[in-house]
């Protein structure tokens, strides 16, 4: 088709496939180094706990973001995969004495498989119908686990305390630092995975489906297949957070593991930070999780739901003034997909 190669075309072809903003790379490097060194600054137990919660919720929101932000499907039932991850490690450790490290992998596998089974029928639904279907399936999971004796019914599973082999049992009773590093590794790993996904052929196809599924279809993309792939990846990212939390509190019950609040919270974090942007879930978690944790401290128990009121107000403000999330306040040149103009 091309007869004469123009100078501008040659110039364009010589451009790198991806631009890396030096400033943002330096900032990321400094943040990662600070996070790695953080426990050496003798922080309080609460500070370690708070950081862990931020990491875990950022990963969970990133999981939701892969589905909603990249392929445009709004899920209200992501707690399903958190619960499966939590139950997988607990069940296999309690009943079969399989180390939680293997349990995490099993949880990831089961979550991916369940996402595929759920996804095949419901990903044909669009918009609100898909969201409602995920919400109801999420509640169904909670009800099934409440009535399933093999997994402890409503009482759930109590993970026996093991002080002899902390690494094998993934139980660290003297300090929370090990949990901190485990969640940090998943946080960095997930960020890197989603960063790669964003730049892959799969990323291009998912974004195309999100923006215009008919146009994507006219460009040879099997829309249903790629939506299922996104759902499976999203579920597999979510599951380990359930596993880690189960090992952290040593109890898994259906009311907490499959709680719809988890599904809503990961949505709120992503919306606040910025849906469809790799930084969005991180920014959202950094803002919302401390509000939740501090309100628990100052108001006791579950924080009298003060955090939910604050979330609501913040989300309304964001929706009115920054619908693209807080990430849109960051100059474009610092964001990942900016190209040289």
């Amino acid at each position: 088709m091309i007869n004469n190669i123009s100078a501008k075309l040659l110039e364009a072809k010589n451009e790198p496939l991806w631009y890396f903003n030096k400033n943002s790379l330096i900032i990321i490097g400094v943040i990662v180094l600070s996070l790695l060194l953080f426990p050496f600054a003798s922080p309080s137990k609460f500070a370690i706990h708070l950081m862990m919660m931020i990491f875990m919720h950022a990963v969970m929101a990133q999981s939701w973001n892969v589905l909603a932000g990249f392929s445009g499907q709004i899920s209200l039932g992501h707690a399903i995969f958190y619960g499966i991850g939590a139950y997988a490690t607990a069940y296999f450790y309690v009943k079969l004495h399989i180390t939680p490290w293997i349990g995490i992998l099993i949880g990831i596998g089961i979550s991916g498989f369940v996402a595929m089974l759920i996804g095949i029928p419901i990903l044909r639904l669009k918009g609100h119908y898909f969201a409602i279907a995920t919400l109801l399936i999420g509640i169904s999971f909670q009800v099934v686990f409440q009535r399933w004796p093999e997994v402890g019914s409503s009482s759930g599973l109590w993970i026996p305390i093991n002080r002899d082999s902390p690494w094998t049992s993934m139980q660290f009773h003297k300090s929370k630092v090990a949990y901190y590093y485990i969640s940090l590794i998943f946080f960095i790993g997930t960020f890197f995975l989603v960063w790669l996904l964003n730049r892959s052929k799969l990323g291009y196809r998912l974004r195309a489906i999100r923006d215009q599924s008919d146009a994507a279809s006219s460009l040879g993309i099997h829309v249903s297949k790629y939506k299922i792939i996104a759902f499976v990846i999203s579920a597999m990212i979510m599951a380990p957070m359930g596993s880690i939390y189960a090992q952290y509190v040593l109890i898994v019950d259906p009311n907490n593991a499959f709680n719809v609040d988890i599904s809503i919270l990961v949505l709120l974090i992503s919306v606040m930070g910025g849906v469809g942007n790799i930084w969005g879930p991180i920014i959202g978690a950094v803002i919302l999780i401390p509000i939740s944790e501090f309100s628990r401290i100052y108001f006791g128990g579950t924080g009298h739901s003060i955090d939910l009121i604050v979330y609501g107000v913040l989300i309304i403000i964001i929706c009115i003034f920054r619908p693209a999330g807080i990430v849109s306040l960051i100059p474009r040149s610092f964001r990942e997909r900016e190209k040289a103009k």
Binding site: R207, A208, D211, Q212
Partner: peptide, 8 residues
């Protein structure tokens, strides 16, 4: 028209 509006 059905462009992928948020992409270059």
């Amino acid at each position: 028209l059905k462009p992928f509006a948020d992409q270059t």
